[in-house]
């Protein structure tokens, strides 16, 4: 049986019919052609498929699309603020050498975003803990951790700038 759902992905509203056994990952990649969200394992272990649902990071490979009715979803394609090329987290990943093959990158960035929203000044240990649901086989994580530290600083600087100018 098909279920009708309406979801907002990166601000765009989609009304779709989905089979109950389709995962959010399949709907994003196959139906919406948003292939930035990757699939590394399909069993919740690697985090390559991480997206935010109503602000919470989840693995899209273990999320049923039927359960997404009425939800707001953020994927890597929606990360950069309107009118800008890169989100500070993305810029940090690029500048700090946190990207090699790039397959883990979209998921890592969303996990980093989730962390920094809830904890704007994380310690190194907190960053490592927050990224432990995202596996990377290329970088050894250290450059990713540095990138997140750098992004945290950037975001805080941006924030204080914008509050001052208000």
């Amino acid at each position: 049986m098909m279920h009708k759902i309406s979801i907002k992905v990166n601000g765009d509203l989609y009304v779709l019919s989905v089979e109950p056994w389709k995962t959010l990952n399949q709907v994003l990649r196959e139906d919406l052609n948003l292939t930035g969200t990757k699939l590394g394992c399909g069993t919740g272990d690697c985090g390559a498929c991480t997206v935010l649902v109503d602000g919470r990071s989840v693995t899209s490979c273990l999320t049923l699309a039927v359960e997404m009715d009425g939800k707001e979803i953020l994927t890597v394609e929606g990360l950069a603020p309107a009118g800008e090329e890169l989100h500070p987290i993305q810029r940090a990943f690029v500048e700090k050498g946190a990207i090699q093959c790039g397959y883990c990158t979209p998921g890592m960035e969303l996990s980093a975003l989730y962390l920094l929203k809830n904890n704007p000044s994380p310690s190194e240990a907190e960053i490592r803990e927050a990224l432990s649901g995202n596996l990377c086989r290329c970088t050894g994580y250290n450059k990713i951790v540095e990138a997140v530290q750098w992004a945290a600083k950037e975001l805080k600087a941006e924030k204080s700038k914008s509050t001052r100018s208000k």
Binding site: T35, E77, Q90, V94, G97, C101, G102
Partner: peptide, 23 residues
Amino acid sequence: KDIPRPDAWLKATGKAVYTDDIK
């Protein structure tokens, strides 16, 4: 020099196309 990889921003934005992304 520490030059950021030119392909990094494609990967950072999810635009880099891997084989399974091809349809």
